[in-house]
Nucleic acid binder design. Structure first.
Lengths: 165, 165
DNA sequence: TCTTGTGGTCAACTGGGTTGACCACTGGGC
DNA sequence: GCCCAGTGGTCAACCCAGTTGACCACAAGA
């Protein structure tokens, strides 16, 4: 049985099947750092789904709530709730859809774009910490290897970015 | 503004701060595959917290519910619920603690160890897919780089492995 | 012995998700 | 042009894995 500790013992060739869990642990560590910095800066910590919403809206103009729900893999009711909150808090605005009178297009406000920019900056900090440890070349190699996996898995489709567990 | 699509466009040097999100997306992809295979095999998909419980118990004998709660970063009430379920389903057993009459030690049953072994096998499949794409050398390099980050972040402590978002 | 702390459970609540029902509107078939 | 199945959006009720709060049995050092 592979009961060997998967923790931070570090060396040796690595057990088969260990890498996926290492991915999860590293992302968790970076995410913790991200939220710690956010708290340090006194910024309200929007929930994960909000961050993904921002990122989606920044790259998809004229997106509707239903589009967002599909991307996040949640029901449109749930997406609608999130959108209502973010609108109430001034991060995004709803406008009538140009061609469909049922629908509304969503767009980030200045405040929303600022928040996303800050988030990008904090992720960059976390990434930089890793770069300092392993060097820019290795980081770039890792980035390519990750991208290779996504390209293979999703082809030309967009990789889903959303909360998971 | 960094509104460039973070999806699977693939090439180019990569945007700063992109790697943490790539980690999340790759883990998500592997996790999806994991659950798809589990469903294929007709195995009931225990919730994530259950898997982490198994992994913890396999490497920590005489663990108590409170230990588990601390490791998972949840309240002992929540841990107690999970333990009760897993016990009811035959995956673990509770025995009186040798030195403390309040406490109970937790241990996997045969059934629990079997499930963990299956999980390891499915993670190995996901990892293998990546190895096929980038080669064993690159995978091993990635594994070391991930481990380096964890070692730096947690030192000699155990890296937490738990649900997150 | 007393006091403080800890393992474990019961109960009530929270919140982000769900399913279900519904209306307003779209758009293709005829 | 008229239908009608399909879709965008919302309201309402519910679900459930987590929370906080209260509590008891026991532990362990003063």
């Amino acid at each position: 049985m592979s009961t060997k500790d998967i923790a931070t013992d570090g060396d040796g060739p690595g057990l088969p099947g260990q890498v996926p869990l290492l991915l999860a642990m590293v992302f968790r560590a970076m995410n913790d750092q991200f939220h710690a910095r956010l708290a340090e800066l006194g910024r309200e910590p929007l929930r994960p789904a909000h961050g993904y919403t921002f990122r989606y809206l920044a790259t998809h103009t004229d997106a509707t709530t239903a589009d967002l729900a599909a991307y996040l893999g949640i029901t449109k009711q749930a997406a609608s709730k999130a959108v209502a909150e973010l609108h109430e808090w001034g991060y995004l605005e709803r406008r009538p859809h140009p061609h469909d009178r049922r629908a509304q297009t969503l767009a980030l406000t200045r405040r929303g774009r600022d928040y996303l920019q800050l988030a990008d900056q904090l992720w960059t900090e976390a990434e930089q910490l890793w770069t300092d440890l392993i060097g820019a070349d290795r980081l770039e190699a890792v980035r390519r290897d990750l991208q290779t996996y996504l390209n293979h898995t999703y082809g030309d489709n967009e990789a889903p970015l959303r909360p998971l567990w």
